[in-house]
């Protein structure tokens, strides 16, 4: 595997990130670089801290009072925990898709239009229409919903709802999309559509996906990080990780010997 490190620009970097919930340390000194060209997968057993760590990347953990983050996390070189950082703006730039599809109880159109409206991204109805269409197209949902944009987003199937949530994240023109087990509530066909979508979005956004499904990590990502007990054990090319992991703990986990 040859990666021309010189041409790869790091979108996000973390250095020695520790996360505490009260006295309990959940993440231990994680340093990682996330770039635009590759999809990065976080894998590891339940409770290893992968979701906790993902949430530090757009300050989702801020909503938990006992949670404390130390170390450095930057977006385009800018410290996202700096006092000057506007958290609402940050979460527009670093979007998130959750495990269970969570569309607003509003129309399909409004689900997408909400973000651009509150961020003032559209100057009028026409431009808003254009953003809605483009976002739904990018999320691979346009053909299925274009004739029923006024129906409720919650009336869609689970897979369609998840793609709606991805369209909603895309609508505010983010730079990074964080996905926290986006397919765990979906059937294999809907899962395949999300995976195909991730493949198409690669390069347009820096994508980080947390997944329990190792086959999925192998299918969608180019880089994989393995977490265990709050530390990042190994981080490297996905193809290398799944054929020849360097760490015993990684091997035990991906071959099903863990525990």
């Amino acid at each position: 595997m040859t990666t021309e490190t010189t041409t790869i620009t790091n979108k996000m970097t973390t250095r020695n990130v520790d996360v505490f919930y009260g006295e309990k340390q959940a993440i231990n000194g994680v340093s990682i670089d996330i770039d635009m060209e590759n999809v990065t997968a976080f894998i590891g057993p339940s409770g290893c801290g992968k979701s906790t760590f993902l949430r530090t990347m757009n300050r989702m953990n801020d909503t938990i009072p006992s949670c404390r983050v130390t170390g450095e996390i930057t977006l385009d070189g800018e410290d996202i925990y700096a006092p000057s950082m506007d958290v609402v703006q940050l979460r527009a730039r670093v979007g998130m898709v959750f495990q269970k599809p969570n569309p607003f109880p509003k129309s399909i159109y409004d689900n997408i239009a909400y973000g651009p409206r509150i961020h003032g991204l559209a100057s009028g109805k026409e431009e808003l229409d254009r953003i809605v269409e483009k976002s739904l197209q990018r999320a691979g949902l346009w053909a299925e919903v274009k004739d029923r944009l006024n129906e409720s987003g919650t009336a869609l199937s689970g897979g369609q709802q998840q793609r709606l949530c991805i369209a909603r994240a895309i609508a505010v023109d983010p730079e990074v999309i964080l996905m926290d087990e986006p397919c765990s509530a979906l059937d294999p066909i809907a899962t395949a559509k999300i995976e195909e979508l991730i493949h198409e979005l690669r390069g347009k956004y820096a994508i980080v996906i947390v997944t329990h499904n190792m086959q999925q990590a192998a299918r969608v990502s180019q880089r994989t990080a393995f977490f265990h007990l709050g530390t990042m054990v190994e981080y490297g090319d996905t193809s290398e990780m799944f054929t020849n992991p360097q760490e015993e703990r990684t091997r035990d986990y991906i071959t099903g010997r863990y525990g």
């Binding site: 190792m214 086959q215 192998a218 799944f242 054929t243 020849n244 990684t250 091997r251 991906i254 071959t255």
Partner: peptide, 9 residues
């Protein structure tokens, strides 16, 4: 079984 790593090898 979708083997991985040394199992696959």
């Amino acid at each position: 079984r979708a083997p991985m790593a040394d199992d696959l090898r």
